[in-house]
């Protein structure tokens, strides 16, 4: 179910402001790709173009192509709603629906895709998704409690369970651990290592150790100055990126001399 993503000549605009320029990369299926770079370099913006979530912001638009298994996500006739059902997303801050129980949160996306689901199937799906997110043992006795009653790390895993319950092709994670403590972060990182057997994962992170720990490939974005667009500097295997990057800018950034 995991799919390869090919991005070619991608520019992202907010109105007339070009936020990201000339990005081209290939994201391999069943792997974790980390996007790193200083604040404001456009890596989150770029991530959101992969499921067309940037369109939520008025005036945001994209030029270029994003091919998912050969299908252009920005082709005419492609419904952004359908794209988002294929490409799940986990946000910086945990955002379970506060008005729904834990079980309802897991099923939220499924109920959109497929309104009729038998009670037995629903229960099975809740369990398998929560197990997939390493949360089942902690919440199995209180599935009818509100999602907001959980700790931050548990909430984030609930959001991951909600995202994988719809069986997406790709999972996007926008700094998923930045609001979590180290132990919860570790739990999420372990989970990512398991999930990459089934999903294509793209993660934005500010934490370079995290990128080095979890990802297979790393892409480094940077920005030349205020008002300039963010650009992809280089992308390579994570090991290479953190040992022998080809670009000076990358080396400066990962060695802490910049950003």
């Amino acid at each position: 179910m995991a799919q390869r993503i090919d991005i070619k000549d991608l520019d992202v605009y907010y109105g007339s402001f070009r936020a990201v320029a000339d990005v081209g990369m290939t994201i391999e299926p069943r792997s974790i790709t980390a996007l790193i770079g200083p604040s404001g370099c456009g890596k989150s913006t770029f991530l959101r173009t992969l499921n067309r979530m940037h369109e939520v912001i008025p005036g945001a638009r994209v030029q270029g192509t994003v091919l998912m298994d050969g299908v252009d996500l920005y082709g005419s006739g492609v419904d952004p709603v359908a794209v988002r059902r294929q490409v799940g997303m986990v946000f910086q801050r945990p955002n379970p629906f506060p008005t729904m129980s834990i079980a309802e949160n897991v099923l939220a996306g499924v109920k959109l895709n497929n309104r009729r689901i038998s009670k037995g199937d629903a229960n099975d799906l809740v369990e398998s998704s929560l197990r997939g997110a390493n949360l089942w043992n902690e919440v199995k006795d209180r599935l009818d409690r509100p999602g907001s009653s959980l700790s931050g790390g548990q909430q984030q895993r609930l959001c991951i369970a909600r995202a994988i319950a719809v069986k997406p092709q790709v999972l996007l994670m926008d700094e998923p651990c930045s609001a979590l403590d180290p132990i919860s972060t570790l739990a999420i990182e372990d989970l990512m290592a398991e999930l990459k057997d089934d999903y294509t994962i793209v993660i934005v992170t500010h934490n370079m150790q995290q990128a080095a720990r979890v990802s297979d490939r790393t892409a480094f974005f940077t920005i030349e100055g205020t008002g300039k667009p963010g650009r992809l500097v280089e992308m390579d295997d994570t090991r290479t990126m953190f040992s022998t990057p080809t670009q000076q800018a990358t080396e400066d950034y990962i060695s802490g001399r910049f950003g």
Partner: peptide
């Protein structure tokens, strides 16, 4: 955004 990202 959580709802939209689920394909709502």
């Amino acid at each position: 955004e959580a709802a939209l990202a689920l394909g709502a």
